[in-house]
Design a protein around this nucleic acid. Sequence first.
DNA 1: TGTTAGCACTCCACAACATCGAGTGCTAAT
DNA 2: ATTAGCACTCGATGTTGTGGAGTGCTAACA
Lengths: 352, 352
Amino acid sequence: MELDERKRKILQAIIRNYLETGEPVGSRTISKYTDLNLSSATIRNEMADLEELGYILQPHTSAGRIPSDKGYRLYVDTMLQEKEEQLSQATQEVKEMQQILLEKEDKMEAILKQMAKVLAVNTNYATLVSAPQVKGNKLKFIQLSRVDVRQLLTTIVVEGNVIKNTMIQVAEPLDDETLLKLNILLNTNLNGLPIEEINLAMIARLKHQAGIYNDIIAEVMDAVAAVIKEDEDIEIYTSGTNNIFKYPELSDHQRASELITTFEEKQLLTELVQDTLTEENSTGIQVYIGNETPVKTMKDCSVVTATYELEEGMKGTIGIIGPRRMDYDKVISTLKTLKSQLDTLYKKEDTQ
Amino acid sequence: MELDERKRKILQAIIRNYLETGEPVGSRTISKYTDLNLSSATIRNEMADLEELGYILQPHTSAGRIPSDKGYRLYVDTMLQEKEEQLSQATQEVKEMQQILLEKEDKMEAILKQMAKVLAVNTNYATLVSAPQVKGNKLKFIQLSRVDVRQLLTTIVVEGNVIKNTMIQVAEPLDDETLLKLNILLNTNLNGLPIEEINLAMIARLKHQAGIYNDIIAEVMDAVAAVIKEDEDIEIYTSGTNNIFKYPELSDHQRASELITTFEEKQLLTELVQDTLTEENSTGIQVYIGNETPVKTMKDCSVVTATYELEEGMKGTIGIIGPRRMDYDKVISTLKTLKSQLDTLYKKEDTQ
DNA sequence: TGTTAGCACTCCACAACATCGAGTGCTAAT
DNA sequence: ATTAGCACTCGATGTTGTGGAGTGCTAACA
């Protein structure tokens, strides 16, 4: 059996209708909904075929049909309609984002949180934003300052202006000259190095050069190591988790509790983010339908993600999590627009 | 009508039983549960009295009784049993906390998150931890560093070792000498000042002294202002929100959705934290029962909070949010122990 | 006078049952 | 190939009835 044009149209109609209502859709509905001018009986025959082909399924014998994962997949891959109006509608949220990014000060964290929130409010789905990873970035600046007689402050700036601080308690006071020497030593040796390359061998060499300042160097290196390590567990911000209650198919106790937990324990989401970052395709947009998602607790959800790249190597993820019957059109076009805005942001800034 | 000893005992028995089961408790149950050796009929009479006095109520005519807010209040105020075993049991979690605090490095944020989590896992309630506020604290260290030709890094350390950074873009490069001068100017003028006192008048004076470096001073002051402002909105960490699903009385759609939203939009919790911090009583522990809580969405919950003080003026809050029928005994003793641990932490550290 | 046994009554929870209607598959006619 | 018609299925919804837990009240008792 073939999936001819008419079957495709009917499938499309079924999915569209189901996305709107969330109810199984029957043959009579389709018979009127489409401009195919076919009777419900004909539709019924076609539907039986579509079911056999695996694109739709029946919750029970005398109910209408709902799309299967395979059906959604086909829809997402080949049937999305990029209407103009849709696009302009999508930019609604994107405009708000731009506003946020313009006022961006330097509080990356606050911006990302805000982004997640605006997206959630506008889409009525749960959202997720991962902070850009500094993977492969270079150390730009390192400094020791004396804050107190026995307290030193390590300040480390990585490319992309990620700033980290650590306090170090020293056993015996350092004089200004020593401090200056240490700073020069650190900067000449470490500046410009990708943070991943600052490893044990490097530390050993520095310790050697440091001579009597062994202990302090060791502590500073620990701080640097902490920075590197810290960036390994990705920061993820979520918003709109309560939106799941808007979709009955997700909000029974069992599922709701699992999902809420997943959103709270953000490390459960890293798998998703990682997957997105690695499996990047040409558009930078990925759609996970139902069981396709890497996170098992989301098997009844669909997830649409976009990978953005602020600067060379600074990649992050934006994700939207909702029910299978998600408004893919809107979500995808929103993410596409947002992604392109973010992608060009750095360049713009650079040339301004 | 008086609340005599027997009535108290019956009330206590009703509450205890209800805390365990969550079901309305009937006269027959109490008749056997207590060692009063009274028949169910007698209990019934007493229960009618207790209801008239407002300590208990009936969900419907032929159901048992459940405690009213007034009943819970009396229980919490006068009937808590601080068994020894209870206390030692409570310290279970506290020990984990101590562990966490010992490994504390300097990542306040991580510690607080972890604290919230451990508490949530152990108690089966939702938890909240607010970061200590720096209110009234003094500026300890301020420094400008050149990171790049046109980028300056402002590092500000406040007492209690809260560190803030801001990047400043400057129009034209500064030479080393100027930078040094600026640093001296900033430190001599600002060090030791309570951050609240760094206001417009101060800025004006500095601008005057700064002469041609007007612009940079202005920017630095903005950064300082940002630090102050930032500490106004309290940081709150929550955990175990999914625990609400363990209590049927909280987990219908309506309530669950509201609660989840409240926990996600943490600013909705600031009111609670503020209230706790201001209305501090002798024990430092506060119990809000049902409608007593400042947050309306929690009218079906009870909240127990503790105020801890790391250093002079650095106060924070720990809270446990659960159903009205919360295990007050356990929660309160856990929080008491934890609070005292935190309160003494700073002193210990200082003298070690 | 306080306590208790007994009893009629109330009301919810739960199960059994009936009903309705949307939707189907199939057949036969067009 | 399409469609009208029909018997059938099955969940959703509503009705009814029964059981049991619990009450309040009364009368008897210590």
